Amino acid sequence: MNRQPHTSTREVIVANAIGEVVRELRMVDVGDYIAYIRLERLASIADLVDSAAELYFQPGTLRLGHGGEAHVAWEGPPRIVLDLELRPTGVTVYFALTLTARKASVEVNYVAFDKPAADPAENDGFLERALEHSRIRRSEPVAT
């Protein structure tokens, strides 16, 4: 697939938006991911993604896409790749989240805007605003 010049910008936008969710997903033991993927228990992975996302996004904003991959070999650490979809109002982002022992990364595969602008920078701004609007707002507890 040929990467478009604005894909890198969108990967940064997505990575920043889901950072807290990624921290939640990393709390799951890597062995569980490997087992769920190898045994094709994708509903279990979808539940993990939904549970992590519900803390930070409106329902349905972030969900498991078509599955995942577990890369496990004797000569290296495991690598989990989850196919995810972000669906804030007005845009859908299809991307892969890769989790390793030390880092996580996002690779955007496709972005579909309901009403795309001719300028990619306008679309980037729309994506950023749409993700911000889909976040759950928490009010700070009042000190007594």
Rank of each mutant, 00 (worst) to 15 (best):
G76Y: 13
G31D: 03
L39P: 04
D32L: 13
F113K: 06
V49F: 13
T7E: 12
L84Q: 06
P141Y: 09
A73V: 14
T92I: 08
S134M: 04
R10A: 04
I136C: 00
A35D: 06
G19D: 00
H71A: 15
T144K: 14
N109M: 12
L99S: 03
A121H: 05
Q58M: 13
H71K: 15
W74Q: 11
V28H: 08
D124G: 03
P120I: 06
V106P: 07
V108K: 04
L99V: 02
P141A: 01
T9C: 14
V22T: 00
L127C: 02
V22Q: 00
S44Y: 14
P5G: 12
L62I: 02
V108S: 08
A70Q: 06
M1A: 06
F57N: 00
L127P: 07
D124N: 00
L62A: 01
A112L: 11
V142T: 08
L55S: 14
R137A: 15
A117T: 08
E54R: 08
L62D: 00
S51F: 12
S51D: 11
R3D: 05
Y110P: 13
L39G: 09
T7P: 11
A130M: 04
E40P: 11
H6N: 14
L25V: 02
R79P: 07
A117N: 06
Y110L: 15
R137F: 13
R138D: 09
I34Y: 09
L86R: 04
A73G: 13
F57M: 01
R38P: 13
A112W: 12
L62M: 00
R135D: 07
G60W: 06
H66N: 10
G90P: 07
G90N: 02
D124L: 07
F57E: 04
E69Q: 08
Y56W: 03
E85A: 03
Y110R: 15
A53P: 00
R102E: 14
M1I: 01
T98E: 04
V72R: 06
A143L: 13
S139K: 14
G31K: 00
V28C: 08
H71E: 15
H133G: 13
A15N: 03
R135V: 04
Y36F: 08
N2P: 14
D114M: 01
E11K: 04
P120W: 03
D119Q: 09
E75C: 14
A73E: 13
A117S: 11
L99G: 06
I18N: 05
E11A: 04
T7I: 14
T92Y: 08
D124H: 10
T100W: 02
T61L: 06
V21Y: 05
A96Y: 12
A43S: 12
D119W: 11
A73D: 14
P120Q: 05
L131V: 04
E122M: 09
A96Q: 12
V93R: 02
E40N: 11
F57W: 05
